[in-house]
Amino acid sequence: MGDLREADLEEIVRLRPNLILISKTGNRKAVAEALAKVGLNVKTMERPNTVAGYADFIRELGLLTGREARARELSEKIRKEAARLQARTAADGRVRTFVQLDAGPVLYSAGAGTLVGDLLDICGGENIVGDRGRAYPALEVEEVIAAAPEVIVVCVMGRRGEAAVRDWARFPWVPAVAAGRIHLLDPDLICRLSPSLLQGMEQISKWLHPEESVP
């Protein structure tokens, strides 16, 4: 799993993997068929864009790889945690949040139809991006400022992420900046399809509702 890059078909065949997962997006069909013809075990799956869908994904994976028990356990854990957080949100209300996916001059965020967006929703955040009809909308800085987020999650790696966090200090009246609630999140935790999603969930929920200490 991991990045969906350009596949070097010959390399894949040479490695003789036991299982190949191909996402349904894009025109991977030809690739899938080509690999299947060679006799490899190919499975196409949808990339999950909700947490629930992600849990299902884990279970399916478990079925495919013969690690059912473990997968089921993880899947359950994710579901339970999601449910708990959702319940808490109902009680404690939502926190206006901005998720920044890019350090570049133009700010990209994640909308409702994405895994990140759903994650945010479950953890009790109100995505300031709202409903713009795009999965990854681009915003001007002033739009973010105008929305007055209470928390800003910067999802960028390395020094650029740190620089982006520092950049926000230019606007001290923004609630998130005033309260110091700008957090750096390792993109690997939520942008990749790995068990670390759970960690990501924990992180984000802690930031959004710090009063809830998770032991």
Binding site: D3, R5, E6, D102, A103, G104, P105, V106, E140, V141
Partner: peptide
């Protein structure tokens, strides 16, 4: 190196005044 690494560069080549 793969397109991923260069995504930032791609945006840069499209030119933007947002960083002014």
């Amino acid at each position: 190196a793969g397109l991923d690494r260069f995504r930032g560069l791609l945006y840069w080549t499209m030119g933007s005044l947002a960083g002014a």
